[in-house]
Structure formats: structure tokens, C-alpha cells
């Protein structure tokens, strides 16, 4: 699966499947501070991503 990080860099994860929350924690990202868009759709972090999925992680900065 392919992961687009908040800084727009791309990481490829060679795993068959994993819960999104687990992936975020492995990347050192607190799930309450980001929104995950899987294959173009916002999803809750307890959904499992599988091979071939694209995850885009949106971090929201403070202010406003």
C-alpha cells in the first residue's frame, strides 16, 4: 500500500493488510491529530487497509 504523508512525501508499505490506526502509530502519528483519506474517501482509523490501497494523511495545523 502507498502512503502519502502530511509533508506530501510518499512511503510504500509492503504489508498485506493492517488497521490504519496501527499504521499511523508506527509512523509516530497520533490518530486524533490527522484525517485519513483512503482511495479518495475519508475513513475512520479502525478500518483495515489492504494491499493496493492508497492512504493520504491530512494533518491539520493550529490556527483559525
Amino acid at each position: 500500500m502507498q502512503i502519502i504523508l502530511p509533508d506530501r512525501s510518499v512511503r510504500t508499505l509492503s504489508r498485506a493488510s493492517a488497521p490504519i490506526e496501527e499504521i499511523l502509530l508506527e509512523l509516530g502519528i497520533n490518530p486524533t491529530t490527522v484525517i485519513v483519506i483512503m482511495n479518495g474517501r475519508i475513513v475512520p482509523e479502525d478500518v483495515t487497509a489492504t494491499e493496493g490501497d492508497e492512504l493520504r494523511i491530512v494533518r491539520f495545523s493550529h490556527g483559525g
Binding site: T32, T33, I35, I42, F60, S61, G63, G64
Partner: peptide, 25 residues
């Protein structure tokens, strides 16, 4: 509403913009 819920709301309504962070933050 939590900050995450607000950003989700804006993304869903098409109003979320990745604006710069305040330099003093």
C-alpha cells in the same frame, strides 16, 4: 466539536484549505 470533527466537516463540504501556520505558533 473537536478540531478533528471540524476539519472533517470542512473537507466534506469542500471548504478545507491547507493554510499556512502562524509563524508565532
Amino acid at each position: 466539536l473537536s478540531e478533528k470533527e471540524i476539519v472533517t466537516y470542512l473537507l466534506l463540504r469542500g471548504y478545507f484549505r491547507d493554510l499556512p501556520e502562524c509563524p508565532y505558533a
